[in-house]
Structures are given as structure tokens and as C-alpha cells.
Simulated assay, not measured.
Amino acid sequence: MQKYDYIITGTGASGLMLIHHLISDSYFDQKQILMIDKQTKDLNDRTWCFWEKDIGIWDKILIKKWNNIYFGSDWFSKKIDISPYQYKMIRSKEFYRFVFNEVQMKSNVTIVQEEVLDIKDEGNIVKVETDQKNYLGDKVFNSIIFSSAYKEQMKYPVLNQHFIGWFIKTSEPVFDTTMATFMDFTVEQKGNTRFMYILPISETEALFEYTLFSEALLKEKEYEDEIIKYLQEREITQYEITEKEKGCIPMTCYDFRKHNSKNIIHLGTAGGWTKPSTGFTFSLTSKKIQKLTNYLKKSSDLSQFGKRTKFWYYDLLFIDLLYKKNHIGASLFSKLFERNKVTKILKFLDEESTLLEDVQITTSLPALNFLKMLWVRISGKFSKAN
């Protein structure tokens, strides 16, 4: 079996972010790296959005960016200037093309199209089994979810950010290209946390995503019926659907890190790098990959990378509450945006806020609900079943 210094299993966002940073740093030039994925990544199968100050490392492949966002609900609605932040959009096809073009210039990187079946840390080496052969690696970076343990455990609730999106093109200019709709909760909630997410690319092109934060998924027709209804209410009737996308992202504080070992680390969603309270993954993963790249220069024990922070505890109480009372999501987010500066909210969600800012954010939300969740956690009585 051929041996590699590093093996990256899965070439989604986190795997490609990692290889981008590794091959951009001369420190890793002598490392032999293998990338394994069962699919060739060359389609627009994902749309990633994030907020950021100034120019970032992915700016050259942005599809669109906005200086304003819109938040809407029955309690509070406003178009908001988010400067010095910008809200940025990337389509996966451009992202894949950009990173794979970089990889092709590097002789120390090998790519194989095979299905990964198992990864096993054998102490001094990691064995990766695919549907075609076995490989050995000193370190393995995995972004494939193999275990359903996070769903089956009872300690931490699992909500899903699930959605279906339509890219539509209208015959006449109808969209405000200066503003992205971050959350519009004016759609019927039906006992859940439901909103419309809108990204206008031009005056005649936009992505409409009907999104839920809830446990159970819907039938495909239910998502699409809500998109149709939303468009009709805004008198947008002359359009064609140019593309569709759908997704489901787990929102949970389950400790994915315990599946790491000295020589294996799980990345992205598989590593628990999704922000539990929002489902956002791209920005936090990008930051963690940069930290991981630096960590590899100093330490060989991957199990010690990353520590639980204060934001994990904030997310825990928020998800606990949203799991038990899914119908109050629109009200919670409305109070958050009505009572706080948006720049402070974005900083908080980016996990960069100070303790004082944390207090200001958390005390703007209904205290009694969160105190009840805190008591249940402290008393050790929380269970997904009760």
C-alpha cells in the first residue's frame, strides 16, 4: 500500500479549504498528499454565503456581495446597512474550479476518484479503505460523515437547517441588487421556525430559498409550494427556474471532536464546525482551517486541536430552547435584530465578541426561557425525549 504524509477524504468545502492552505504554504511542499472523493466536483451543487470585513481570500471568486441585508417579521422589519461588513456569495462550481486549478500545479498532490468506506487509526499509521484499494497515511483529514451517533444520542438535540432553493430569472427587472434578504419570517410559521432567504444576483436574477430550522424535513412539494406562494404575493409571476438546489445541515452541540484521534481529525460538518444556532458553516470552517494549518507546524496530535469555547454554551441553550419550542424562533430572532446593532450581532455569530458584548446580546433575548433551559442543563435533566 502506498503511504502518504496527509490524506484528505472528501473534497467538499472543508477539504478544499485545507488543501488550498497547505499548497499555499511552502512549509508543506515536501508533504505527499492524497485527496479522495467518490465524485468529481465540478457542478453548482452548493451556494455558500458569509459576512466579512475588507477583502478576503475568496473574494476573487465571489458571485455577488451586498452592503445591506433585510430582516423581516411580524414584529420587526428593516433594511440594514452592515458596514464595515459585506455579505458575500460563492457558487460551488467557481470554488471547485479555483482550488482544483491550484492543485493541478502541485506535483506533491494526488487525486483519486474512489468511495471511502472506512478510516482506522492503527496507532502509528492510518489505514484508509476505499471501494478499490487501501491507502496509508500519517495523518487523515476527513469531512465525510460515517457515523449516525450524533442523531441517536439523547443528550444533545439535533435540529436541521433544511431548504430548497430556486434560481429564477424574470422577464422584467424586479430585484433590488443592493440588498440580500437575510431572514424573512413573514411566511406562515406552521409551528416551526421558517423563513425565506433571498439573494438577488441582478435585477432579473435571484435565489429564493425556503428554509426551516426544525427537526423534521418536509416533502419536496411543500418547500416549492411556499416559494411559489411567496413569489405570487409579491406579484412575481413571469419567471423561469434556471437552477434548483436543496440541502440539510445538522444544527447540534453534539461533541463531534470525540471521534478525532491522534492521527485523524474530522472537518466541516463532520467535525461539528457548523454554527449550531444558525447552520452557517463556511466562514467558521475557513477560520478553523487556517488555525489547523498553523497547528500542523507545531503539533502532531490532532485530538488536541480545538477547544470548547463560551460560544458553545450560548449555542447549547439556544438550540435546547428552539428544540423544545420551535414555534418561537421568529420571535427570538426578531428581538435579536430589533434590540442590537447588526454589526454586534454579526461579530457575536462570528464568535469574535467580547464578554461585555455577549452579555448585551444575551440579555436582549427573553431571559425566563433561557434560565429554564439553563436550569434543566445544570440539573442534568435534559433529554431529547422529554
Rank of each mutant, 00 (worst) to 15 (best):
W51M: 04
R91N: 13
S83A: 03
M35V: 07
S73H: 04
W75L: 14
V126I: 02
L62V: 04
R97C: 06
D121G: 05
G137Y: 02
N67Q: 13
L34R: 00
W66F: 05
I80K: 13
K88A: 06
K79H: 00
I61Y: 02
I90Q: 00
K106R: 15
H20D: 11
K31Y: 08
S147W: 11
I125A: 00
I82S: 05
H20Y: 11
V126R: 03
E102S: 13
Y70V: 12
Y85P: 04
D45G: 11
K139Q: 15
V116N: 01
T130K: 00
L22M: 10
D54G: 13
Q113C: 15
P157S: 07
W58R: 01
V103Q: 04
S147I: 09
Q39R: 10
S77I: 08
Y96D: 13
I144D: 13
D121W: 10
K133C: 07
W51P: 06
T110K: 11
Y96V: 00
G72S: 10
V128W: 11
Q113A: 09
D42A: 14
V99A: 03
H21I: 01
I61R: 06
L159C: 08
Y87P: 02
K65Y: 15
K120E: 15
E115S: 14
Y70T: 13
K31R: 08
T40L: 08
E129K: 14
M105C: 08
V116H: 01
T47D: 04
D138V: 01
E129M: 12
Y150W: 06
T47R: 09
K155P: 00
E152N: 10
N68I: 00
T47H: 01
K151W: 13
G72V: 04
D42E: 15
W66N: 09
N44S: 06
L62D: 09
Q32T: 13
K127A: 01
S143Q: 11
D81H: 09
Y85F: 15
M154I: 14
K93A: 10
T110M: 10
I63Q: 13
S107P: 11
S148M: 01
Y70L: 12
S147L: 07
D118E: 11
V140T: 12
D25I: 06
